[in-house]
Design a binder for these strands. Structure first.
Lengths: 158, 158
DNA sequence: AGCGGAACGTTATAACATAGCGCCTATCGA
DNA sequence: TCGATAGGCGCTATGTTATAACGTTCCGCT
């Protein structure tokens, strides 16, 4: 990876430091390709499908990128907790609250496609409790509420 | 649909009556094809992928069935509340508690593939509340906890 | 320098899902 | 009873999402 063009790596210091911290914590290498993928997800400004991400990266880097490459980067970013997968829409979104493990909790608007991340400890606790009551050992929890966000509801009613 | 072979329609009276009731309530027609699909999902004994379902139906009816046909049946069964889609695993499962609208809440075991449906009003309420606090109008909620079920955890520890 | 494991690239293919069209049939009002 | 019509169904084709499998390169370590 003897590339020059980190020139255009458009990522704020805040997220960059967070990414570095998460990778250090989890003993994972933050390679240029992984960082570029993460930056692109951040810059997409919302959920993005794997193939959209491929298209953007190809555009940016002016070369072909095969699906497995990007899926590996996505798997990595999810592993270290920088990205969540939205199961309801088969898409990926940058975690807004990295730095600690937590269930994925989202409000997904069907109108504008926005994904608002919740951070309810109460909800998380209730999930853990429910699992425990059934003798279930939870690994990963997903909460996705699909509907219409406040902004869109407002627009619709003129 | 001038078919004879309802002969082998393997569905218990309980579920059949439920299906009829749900369709009547929602003014939808419970056609033979839809009922056969529902029966097959019930008989599969757990979550089943759309293409597995196609294979089973083809086997059963000894004819080709194209994906759109089965997806339409699945959409119908979800619409009337007899089947849920498991987003985390892209599969479909018969609802264990039909008869009333409710969020889809599941414990998904990665070992045995079982899908245990929860029925927590508390959880449902918390979801509604969270949405409301954000001015969000929920349409459909999904809760999926992935992990290892009690039985499998037991087996693993000998 | 040489080893071993992680990361990466590539080809091919699997798995999941829908668009769009035409036909058939149950249902309902005239 | 007849005709209109809307829903259900089958089919072809294609779009979308994801992974298998293999070889090469990079990097840290001894």
């Amino acid at each position: 990876m003897r590339d020059a063009p980190n020139l255009e790596l458009n990522i704020s210091a805040k997220w960059l430091k967070l990414a570095e911290a998460r990778c250090a914590e989890t003993k994972n290498r933050l390679t240029p390709a992984r960082l570029v993928a993460y930056a692109e997800i951040l810059n997409s400004g919302g959920p993005i499908s794997a193939y959209e991400l491929i298209a953007r990266l190809e555009q940016k880097e002016q070369r072909k990128i095969a699906p497995p490459t990007v899926y590996r980067h996505l798997d990595f970013l999810m592993r270290v907790g920088l990205v969540h997968r939205l199961e309801s829409t088969q898409s990926f979104v940058a975690c807004e609250h990295p730095g600690h493990e937590h269930a994925s909790q989202y409000l997904l608007c069907t109108e504008c496609g926005s994904a608002d991340e919740l951070e309810s400890g109460e909800l998380e606790q209730l999930l853990a409790q429910a699992a425990d009551q059934h003798g279930f050992q939870p690994d990963k929890s997903v909460v996705e509420i699909t509907g219409v966000c406040g902004d869109c509801a407002h627009l619709e009613s003129h």
